[in-house]
Nucleic acid binder design. Structure first.
Lengths: 219, 219, 219, 219
DNA sequence: GATGAATGAGCTTTCATTCAT
DNA sequence: AATGAATGAAAGCTCATTCAT
């Protein structure tokens, strides 16, 4: 459909030109994150993307070459937000129980308030990974970084390496993934809250064992 | 399966006719399960479905009304297989440790050998649940049944209700979901195996606490 | 879509069987009149017909052979209603002015209260007549009968042949056709009423001339 | 028309490109007018349209968004031709009788030589007006303009407003509509000619009354 | 860098119809 | 007479992409 002119006006100077190009690129990526999180990659059409980003269809090809070319940049854009959220959540100070609570609560907030971040990654993983190695690598890297962030967060916060930290990281991530899927299927907040209450209990039990063991080993 | 013979052979009796209709329906569902598990719902075209099921396009509309109409039947068809697998895995006899191992191993096999079952459900949840309440309800019901199956399996196998059984169920399912996503992104078997080794450890720690507590309470 | 059984139950006796067949046929025709009047012949699908008539798809083929086979019976069914309306309207008694008013008012009611009768005929004429001679003949016959009904109504009501009766008939029918088209495009009742007020004036002027002429010829 | 050469030849300037787009749009509209006049809107397929316009299927969607989007432009395109024909017919000079003859004859020619113009409008009105308000508005506007053209033609030709001009306009349009429908059902030229002879008589009678009245008022 | 236009493959769905019981 | 199932053609429309400016 022929539409009116969408962009402000033709930029004169070459640097302004580059800046506006960058802005267009960002707008496309924002729209892509939203739409892929909402409906998955396959169901996100170039056209829908353009409408949401207020950009002309060919702009996507200029900036990303093809629809495929969006995948990795989109993953990377989500990655930072993801890791940030986790690092903000990972426990740093206070007594052990308070730190654990803060950690679990941070994850819960991630799932309840910005579920689309997690959802996008899961959707891409489930939809497409067997096809494109680059996508696979990007996703693998994110999951890896998330795990590392948790592990080193725990170790730092405790002042020493902790045997269960990898285990805790995996459990936490598993609960997060599962919570997102579950939330899509049963959006009642109470359900999600119960989910994370269970995570807290599980982690407590796992840590409790270690604590007791230490008390026995070195009283 | 004895496909390849287009169902052009004349069906004799009136009941035979209805039976053949049922067979066509089943063939479509089989194909749908396979394809949706492989590529997701959106990327599964009616045409591909027909080719795989050896059926003409309109047959799908006769039996299911629309592409949408496949979703719930497909979910229900996968549901049984899913629950069966879990029930086969849930521990029943032997000493506690052996039962736990058998349970975790069952789940690992599910993920490694029939990942498409889990994948289909997750993909449908992530792709489509916002839109259609019926899909959402069907998926919610499956997840619920899976959890119930584990809980009652544990309780039965222990001869009494067990305070942590719900927690265990949730943890196990979370690990299963996460393992499937992870496996798609990093298909090395060793990774998946490690994943389930971690699940075993986690469950052990959680059960261990309870066991110790009992020993203290009633020595 | 497989639906439940729509008809009451299997009729036992052969005469009951025939009666029910006739009833089905009537229901199909009723539905066809409604739908063709609403959306034209081409846009009326066999399926929509079945739903409206509460009849199974193949019943239409049993009773009418093909979609085409509906056209002439539908026209004939509408024809009687049409001619009846006109004959009810055509003036019979009272002084000339009252009779004229009654006639115009009858036509106005036809257009305002049962426009689908006229609409169906016009739609069929405009959509299809160049293709099928049988349709064309049926429509021609109706229009002819309508004209004849008016002419002989006028002559009977005046007790003698009237030179302008054919002219009046044609004018009246033209106004009816035009009013229906106009009404579809501008459904305000006031417009339609004005339309027929104009018809009344036009006829008065035409008759007035003749009356005056008679007065001059034989005072 | 110089068709047959698919527009694959490279357009040079940026304005030439836009001009070529406009040309494509026009070609589609031309084809649409022809086909809809021939078979009605519902029976005109996008494919047939493309073949006739020598254009690829998607071009229609680019220029008009959907099949629906053709309706109003098509109506508007026919409108001008319609109004032109009428204005050419409306009487301007000569003695009253000659002017009347010329007017009726113009309408007759419109119906006999370019019936598709009228047919298209009637078909659209009967097929679709319930649904889309934009279509309805466009058609209403045309009929209105046609009436106005006649009224002001009469008044101009007589040098003063004439009390019956609105009545004459409506009668003439009613006869035109009716004649088109009648002609489709009974294509014998003699019939159509008789139809317009009747129109002439009718108008004469209506005008005659007024003339006599004037003679009485101002002899 | 942005834009209007075009392109062809492919999409889901509906069509009228037929068959065998 | 009615019914469930099947059939192939064609419908309207969307897809990702390319081209030339």
């Amino acid at each position: 459909m022929p539409a009116g002119s969408r962009n402000r006006s033709a930029p004169a100077s070459p640097s302004a030109r580059r800046a506006q190009g960058e802005a267009t690129r960002e707008r496309i990526l924002d729209a892509a994150v939203e739409l892929i999180a909402e409906r998955g990659f396959a169901a996100t059409s170039i056209d829908a993307l353009c409408q949401r980003a207020n950009v002309v269809r060919t702009a996507i090809y200029w900036h990303f070459g093809a629809k495929e070319g969006l995948v990795v940049p989109v993953i990377e854009r989500v990655a930072s937000a993801w890791i940030d959220e986790i690092q903000r959540a990972v426990f740093r100070e206070g007594d052990p129980l308070a730190r654990l609570d803060r950690f679990v609560d941070g994850l819960r907030q991630l799932v309840m308030e910005r579920p689309h971040l997690v959802r996008l990654l899961l959707a891409l993983a489930l939809e497409r990974s067997d096809q494109d190695p680059a996508t696979r690598a990007a996703l693998r890297s994110i999951f890896e970084r998330a795990r590392t962030a948790i592990v080193s967060g725990i170790d730092t916060s405790l002042g020493q390496p902790w045997p269960e930290s990898a285990l805790i990281a995996r459990t936490a991530l598993a609960f997060v993934s599962h919570a997102v899927a579950q939330q899509l299927v049963d959006p009642r907040p109470a359900e999600t809250r119960q989910h994370f209450a269970d995570l807290r209990t599980a982690l407590l039990l796992m840590i409790g064992a270690r604590l007791r063991e230490r008390e026995v080993a070195a009283p």
